[in-house]
Write a protein that binds this DNA or RNA. Structure first.
Length: 494
RNA sequence: GGCCCGUUAGCUCAGCUGGUAGAGCAUCUGACUCUUAAUCAGAGGGUCGCAGGUUCGAUCCCUGCACGGGUCACCA
C-alpha cells in the first residue's frame, strides 16, 4: 500500500462526498457511441463551419488528464490511452451544481460525456459537454504531465502508468502486437497451422540452456519449463502436420540483460520437404512483408550506423567468419585442441568448459558477434554446436544451419532438421559427454524423441525467431525490457 | 557474480568545502466564460532508499545492505 499523503486523503475525501451525494463512483457501464480515437479520426479535419452546421452529437468516455479551470467555463482533456479529446464545460449549460462537481474531479478519474463537437479559436476539436457521468475514481496521484514517468524502475513495475502517460511506450507495444498478428497472417497464408505444445516438459530439449524446474504434486515428479518447443513441433512433423508454428514463451534460467529476459517469446516454425536454404528465403520474405505492411522500417539507426532491413541479407560461413574477425587461421579454428586452448586463455580457465563446442561458441561471440551490425546469415555451423541439425550435404563436419544476426544480436536460428534417428542418438550421446565434461547446458537424451524419429520424420527445415528482439529491431529499441510489458524485476520490499 | 552510476516532496529534477532542504508540475484556498505546459495571488506537503560508522554536527564523508540502470562475465 502506498503511504497516505495529503493528496491521497483529498482524493479519498472526494470519493466519500460522491457517495454521500448519491453518485455511484464505480458504476457498471456507460453507453459510448464512439471511442475517443474514432471521434478524433473522424472529425478532426472538419472545419469550424461544418461542425457548426452538422451539430454532431457524441457520447464517449475516458480518463481526465488535464484540467484548465476558469471562472464560468473550463477545459479538460480526456484520453482513452491513445488519443485525447478536449472537453469544454460551461456553467450555464450544465448548471452551477454540475459545473462545481466536474471541477472537483481529479486527474486520472474516468468520466463519460455527451455533447456537441466544435472547434476552438485555435482549431482544436472540442466537445461542449451537455451531460456527463462519473465512471471511476483514481485515488492515487499521477506522474507529471510534461516529463511523464521517467524512472525506469517505476515504468516497468507500474507499466499501466507508463502506458497511458508515455505515448512512446504504448506505441512500442502496439507495434509489437501488430507485428505478431502480421507474422501469423504471413504464415497462415502459406498453409501453416498454429499449434500449442507443452510448456512443462519432463526433459527440457531443443536448445542449449539451463531450465527452470517445477514440481507436479499429484504425479510426484519434477518438470521443466520449456527452453524451446522444438522437439515437440518435430514430433508433429512425424504425425503428419507438414507446416506448423508456435508463438509462445520459452523460459531460460540465466542472466538478465538488455537482451535477455528469463521468459521470452519465440516463434518456431517447421516446414516439411524443405531445407535451410528455403527458410533463408522465407525469412527474407518475412522481413520484406513486414516492411511492405508498414510494420518494420526500411532502415534503423544503431549506434550511429544505419541498418538496412531490406533483404537480401549478407551471408557468411561460420568458420570463415571467425577467420575474418579473429587472429586465428582456419587450421587453428579446426584444430580442436588448439581452439580449446585459445578459448581457455581468452576466457580464463575457470570460466569455460573445455569442450570444442563451447570453444567455438566462445570464440564466435568474442570476435564475430560485435561485427554483425547489418543483417547477416551466418551459415554452416560445425556439428559440435548443432546437435539437432542435419549434416551438411557438401561440407563434412558441418551442418545445414544458419543464424540471422543484426545489431550485434542473434535474431533467428534455423536448419535442415536432423531426421536420422541413429545420428540423432549419436549426437545426444556426444552431448552427454559434454555434460560429463562440465557443460551443464548440454542436451539430455530424449529417447521418446528418438522413437518418434524411428517412425520416420519427413525431410524438413525449422527455424526460431526471437519475437522480443525482432520487436527491438523494428522499434529501434535497445533494451528488451522496453518491449516486454512486464519484464521480470525483483520484488521491492515496501 | 565483478566494476561503475543512481536512489532527495505524488512526479521531473536542483542542492557549493559537512552547518538538519529548494524549484517546476500536481494538490489545497481565492480570482477568472475560448484555455491548451492556461494565467494571477496565497498555502500545505520531506524518516534526503535502509542500517551502522566518523564528526560538536551528515542529504553531503566511510562501511554494509536493498532496488534499479550501464557494462563485463554467464548466456543465443
Amino acid at each position: 500500500m502506498p503511504e497516505i499523503t495529503d493528496e491521497i486523503k483529498v482524493r479519498e475525501e472526494k470519493l466519500k462526498k460522491l457517495r454521500e451525494s448519491g453518485i455511484e463512483p464505480y458504476p457498471y457501464s456507460y453507453d459510448i457511441k464512439e471511442n475517443i480515437s474514432a471521434i478524433v479520426k473522424k472529425y478532426k479535419n472538419k472545419s469550424e463551419e461544418e461542425l457548426e452546421k452538422e451539430k454532431i452529437e457524441i457520447s464517449t468516455a475516458g480518463r481526465i488528464i488535464a484540467k484548465r479551470i476558469m471562472g464560468g467555463a473550463s477545459f479538460f482533456h480526456l484520453t482513452n490511452g491513445k488519443d485525447k479529446l478536449q472537453l469544454y464545460l460551461k456553467k450555464n449549460i450544465v448548471g452551477n451544481e454540475n459545473y462545481k462537481l466536474f471541477k472537483s474531479f481529479d486527474l486520472g478519474d474516468f468520466v463519460g460525456v455527451e455533447g456537441k463537437l466544435f472547434k476552438t479559436r485555435t482549431g482544436e476539436l472540442t466537445v461542449v459537454v451537455e451531460n456527463f457521468e462519473f465512471l471511476s475514481k483514481c485515488l492515487l496521484p499521477l506522474p507529471e504531465k510534461w516529463h511523464g514517468l521517467q524512472d525506469k524502475e517505476l515504468r516497468f513495475r507500474q507499466r499501466y502508468l507508463d502506458l497511458f502517460i508515455n505515448p512512446g511506450s504504448r506505441e512500442i507495444f502496439e507495434k509489437r502486437f501488430k507485428m505478431i498478428r502480421e507474422i501469423r497472417r504471413f504464415l497462415d497464408s502459406r498453409d501453416y497451422i498454429e499449434v500449442e505444445t507443452p510448456m512443462m516438459q519432463p526433459i527440457p530439449g531443443g536448445a542449449i540452456a539451463r531450465p527452470f524446474i517445477t514440481h507436479h504434486n499429484a504425479l510426484n515428479m519434477d518438470l521443466y519449463l520449456r527452453i524451446a518447443p522444438e522437439l515437440y513441433l518435430k514430433r508433429l512433423l512425424v504425425g503428419g502436420f507438414e507446416r506448423v508454428y508456435e508463438i509462445n514463451r520459452n523460459f531460460r534460467n540465466e542472466g538478465i540483460s538488455s537482451q535477455h529476459n528469463p521468459e521470452f517469446t519465440m516463434l518456431e516454425f517447421y516446414q516439411a520437404y524443405s531445407d535451410f536454404e528455403d527458410l533463408i528465403e522465407l525469412t527474407e520474405e518475412l522481413f520484406q512483408d513486414l516492411i511492405d505492411k508498414g510494420i518494420a522500417p526500411e532502415k534503423i539507426e544503431f549506434e550511429g550506423d544505419e541498418i538496412k532491413l531490406t533483404p537480401p541479407f549478407k551471408k557468411l560461413d561460420f568458420i570463415e567468419a571467425i577467420e575474418k574477425y579473429s587472429p586465428l587461421s582456419k587450421e587453428e579454428i579446426l584444430d580442436k585442441e588448439k581452439l580449446i586452448n585459445h578459448a581457455l586463455k581468452l576466457a580464463g580457465e575457470d570460466n569455460l568448459t573445455p569442450t570444442y563446442g563451447k570453444a567455438l561458441d566462445y570464440v564466435f561471440d568474442e570476435y564475430v558477434k560485435e561485427n554483425l551490425v547489418q543483417p547477416t546469415f551466418v551459415m554452416n555451423h560445425p556439428e559440435e554446436i548443432s546437435p539437432l541439425s542435419k549434416p551438411h550435404r557438401k561440407m563434412p563436419g558441418r551442418t545445414e544451419r544458419f543464424e540471422l544476426f543484426m545489431a550485434k544480436m542473434e535474431l533467428a536460428n534455423g536448419f535442415s532438421e536432423l531426421n536420422d534417428p541413429e545420428i540423432q542418438l549419436q549426437r545426444f550421446k556426444e552431448q552427454v559427454k559434454d555434460r560429463e565434461a562440465g557443460d551443464e547446458e548440454a542436451h539430455l537424451i530424449d529417447y521418446d524423441y528418438i522413437k518418434a524419429l524411428q517412425y520416420g520424420m519427413p525431410p524438413a527445415a525449422g527455424e526460431g525467431i526471437g519475437i522480443d528482439r525482432l520487436t527491438m529491431i523494428i522499434t529501434g529499441t535497445r533494451s528488451i525490457k522496453e518491449v516486454i510489458l512486464f519484464p521480470l524485476l525483483k520484488p521491492k520490499e515496501e
